[in-house]
């Protein structure tokens, strides 16, 4: 089996975060924002705010023209960011600056095409910027050969998704490629805040935990403190994106208010994990 690869590198900071949290009996808070929304400096200040108020890992979305797996909130976030012509180079610089501010591990979230066109240069740039992990949403393990080859020896983890539609055999297959943590998609659908999450989340996460020792993060749809608290009971990380981005959209002309709202929300979530 390929599972041995999970243990090959033990100096990735993603592992260190989860090990530390385990000792402290806490769960990870992983907020998601788009790089460049509403503009590069404000998004940088948001990332700093999140790092200061309790994010254990930060997931940073690279804006793409055709975000097929995303709901309306993140679509609009990408559209705002795209107006600022964010290149992958900008994203790498963003991450470098963030790491100079505070050493919080990142998941770089992207669609495959912007990565594919760069070839090995993507992996070189990501390594230089200190990127710990990459989640390519439209790159399943079956197609990730070339990409994996580029990042594997640079100690960058590829984060894979598991969905409510993934059956047990396929869970085993995907998990044999997974490193750092496995990302469980809580709903059959695109990203976006939901009032209610399906009951299958708990049973599926429990099922996944029988197959792997990797930490399990749960994302898509989580929007409230109550949901976060509930999910943290049986998973290892709570991932929240659209709800945070909604604060940007609701207060688009008031940067200070955006930062204040996000700081409050972040602390609130952190307090229950």
């Amino acid at each position: 089996m390929r599972n041995e690869r999970n243990f090959k590198h033990n100096n990735n900071k993603i592992d260190a975060v989860f090990n530390k949290l385990k000792e402290e009996k806490r769960k990870a808070f992983i907020p998601f924002i788009s790089i460049g929304d509403p503009d590069i400096e404000t998004s940088f200040d948001i990332a700093k705010t999140l790092a200061e108020t309790g994010a254990d890992i930060i997931e940073l979305g690279f804006p793409f023209s055709d975000p097929m797996a995303d709901g309306k909130v993140i679509q609009r976030s990408y559209e705002r960011a795209l107006k600022n012509k964010i290149s992958m180079e900008n994203a790498f610089n963003f991450i470098k600056r963030l790491k100079a501010f505070k050493d919080v591990p990142v998941v770089l979230f992207t669609y495959y095409n912007p990565v594919f066109v760069m070839g090995e240069k993507f992996a070189e740039g990501a390594e230089e910027a200190g990127v710990e992990s990459v989640l390519v949403v439209d790159l399943p393990p079956e197609e990730s050969g070339e990409f994996t080859k580029y990042i594997e020896d640079r100690n960058i983890y590829q984060i894979f998704l598991l969905a409510p539609t993934t059956d047990k055999d396929r869970m085993r297959l995907v998990l044999s490629y997974a490193k750092g943590f496995a990302y469980y998609v809580s709903v059959t659908g695109v990203t976006g805040a939901r009032k209610n999450l399906p009951e299958t989340v708990k049973s599926n996460v429990t099922e996944i935990k029988k197959i792997t020792d990797l930490p399990i993060g749960v994302g898509f749809g989580i929007s409230s403190k109550e949901q976060a608290k509930d999910i943290a009971k049986y998973s290892d990380a709570v991932i929240i994106g659209s709800r945070i981005i909604q604060f940007i959209e609701d207060n688009i002309n008031d940067k200070e208010l955006i930062l204040k709202k996000i700081a409050e929300f972040s602390k609130d979530i952190r307090s229950v994990l």
Binding site: M68, A69, Y112, V137, D138, L139, P140, E142, E143, F160, L161, L162, A163, P164, T165, T166, D167, R170, V174, V185, T188, G189
Partner: peptide, 21 residues
């Protein structure tokens, strides 16, 4: 068998869709 025409084609989709295709 994996849907490739040389280097083209394939299945570049999110996990939720993989079981369906």
């Amino acid at each position: 068998d994996n849907g490739h025409f040389g280097e083209y084609g394939g299945r570049y989709i999110s996990e939720t869709l993989m079981p369906a295709v």
